[in-house]
Every structure is written in C-alpha cells, then in structure tokens.
C-alpha cells in the first residue's frame, strides 16, 4: 500500500513537472527545433534580452500589479470596515454577493462585460480608442476587490469588540481608535489581501486580453508570442519566470524551515 501510494504520487509529479522540464531544456537548445536537442546554448536568452519587449512588459506588469493591488487594498479595507458595521442583513448580503461576482463568473465573461462598458462609454464620449492602460487598471482593481474584502472582513469579525470600545473610553477619537487599535488587529488580513491581489494581477491573462489594447503585460506578451510560430525565446522567458517563482517560494518558506530546524535541534538536546 505504501509503495502503491509512492508510485501514484511519483506519477502525479512527473505529469505536473515534465512539461515544465521540457520547456526549460529546450530554452537552452541551440536550434529552433522542439523535437531534437541540438546542443547547449544561451542564444535564446540573449535574443530575449536583445529586444526590449520582455523587460518592458515586465515593468508594465509590475506597475499594474502594484497600483491595482494598492487601490483594491485601500477600497476593500475601507469597505470591510464599513460592511462590518452594517445592520441590515439584506443589503449586506446583496453587496457581498455583487462583490463576489467577478470571483464566481468565468474570467471571459468578466472581461467581456467590462469591455462592453468601456467601449460603450468610449463611443459615447467620442474617443478614438476606448481601451488603454486605465481601463486595464480599473479591470484589475475590480477583480482584486473581492479577494481583499474576503481576507479582511473575517479579521474584523475575529477582533475583540471590546478593544476599540476601550480605546474610545480612554479618550481616543473614533478615527484614532480605528487607526491605532483596529488597523493593527486586522493587519494580517490586509497583508494577505494585498499579496493575493498582486499575484492575481501578475497572473491574469483573460481579463487583460479584453480590457486593454496597446499596453502589454507579460501574459499578453506571451500570448502574442504564442500566436505566431514560436521562437524558443518564449521558452527562455518562461524558464526565467519559473526560476523567479521557485526562488520566491523558497525564500518565503525559509523562515518556517528555520523554525522547524530549531525545534528539531531543541528536540535533540532534550
């Protein structure tokens, strides 16, 4: 049974990682073929950095991710602070359901629906192009909002209700009580929401595809690279992205690994 489980897990990981491994391998291929490995070379990496598209797209992606995550965190945290105080069950439920629509709806419907709005407004004001950087930013803020609210609202509910009241009794103004007492309490939720928003924004392709034109993010660049016959510089780009993710994952896990080590060490000493 134990061996059977191990074989199952081995097959699963092979299935999950084999395509990525092949991509990495062929990014170092000296030829263009994806069937035969002709020899090791860094040619496609040079090619990738030679044209500035990738670096430009990376910059754009980070700008949109940071701005949209910051805006969504601000609006979403304020919203959670307000919603937490709502008495009316119906209105609160309706608002939360509406907020969750972009999360439940397939991405393509969210993207298309926003595109219709932007195009309609663009035509109404007579603009020549209605899709640009700002429509992309609006779209990203919109699909980030439910995730921020979803991670902040529970923190308000878990908070000890007596704390802000005590602050008020001790002479804080309501605003002071909010910023000095409540915000530190819900900070982990705000942080989770912000990080989640950044990663969602970096990763998004479908909604961006419909809500911008002329402004290129990394996923949009990859899409346009795979539209024509692909040159292996796309594999080089993917490899670099994978390595970055891997490093980030390892770095973010180092604290917990160190913690485990410490515990183990203590266990040995005892």
């Amino acid at each position: 049974m134990k061996i059977l489980s191990k074989i199952c897990m081995g097959l699963l990981y092979f299935f999950l990682y084999m395509p990525i491994a092949v991509l990495v391998l062929f990014s170092f291929n000296s030829g263009r073929s994806t069937g035969v490995f002709e020899g090791f070379s860094l040619y496609w990496y040079k090619e990738l950095f030679h044209n500035g598209d990738a670096l430009n797209a990376l910059c754009n992606t980070l700008i949109v991710a940071f701005l949209s995550a910051a805006a969504a965190t601000l609006i979403g945290t304020a919203a959670a602070a307000g919603i937490y105080k709502f008495r009316g069950r119906f209105f609160r439920g309706a608002l939360l359901n509406l907020t969750n629509v972009p999360m439940m709806n397939p991405d393509i419907v969210t993207g298309v629906s926003m595109m219709l709005l932007f195009v309609f407004v663009g035509r109404a004001v007579g603009a020549s192009t209605s899709l640009n950087f700002f429509t992309l930013l609006i779209a990203h803020i919109t699909f980030n909002l439910p995730y921020v609210i979803l991670s902040v609202l529970p923190k308000f509910r878990q908070m000890d209700k007596n704390l802000p009241e005590a602050a008020l009794d001790l002479g804080c103004t309501p605003l002071q009580a909010f910023f000095k007492v409540e915000i530190p309490q819900i900070m982990p939720g705000i942080f989770t929401g912000f990080v989640m928003a950044i990663t969602l924004s970096i990763d998004d392709f479908v909604i961006s595809h419909f809500t911008t034109s002329g402004f290129q993010t990394l996923p949009l660049l990859i899409y346009s690279m795979t539209k024509r016959t692909v040159k292996p510089d796309m594999y080089a780009l993917s490899t670099l992205i994978f390595v970055t993710i891997l490093l980030l994952m390892i770095l973010s896990n180092i604290p917990s690994i160190l913690e485990d080590r410490k515990k183990k060490y203590k266990g040995v000493n005892r």
Binding site: P19, I20, V22, L23, T199, D203, F205, L218, P219, I222, Y223, T226, V230, M234, S238, I241, F242, I245, M249
Partner: peptide, 10 residues
Amino acid sequence: WMNLLIRTYS
C-alpha cells in the same frame, strides 16, 4: 504559479 499560457504551451 506559472501562467496558464505557459503551462498550456509546454
């Protein structure tokens, strides 16, 4: 964590 486009293309 890899983009869907890359995973599909691989």
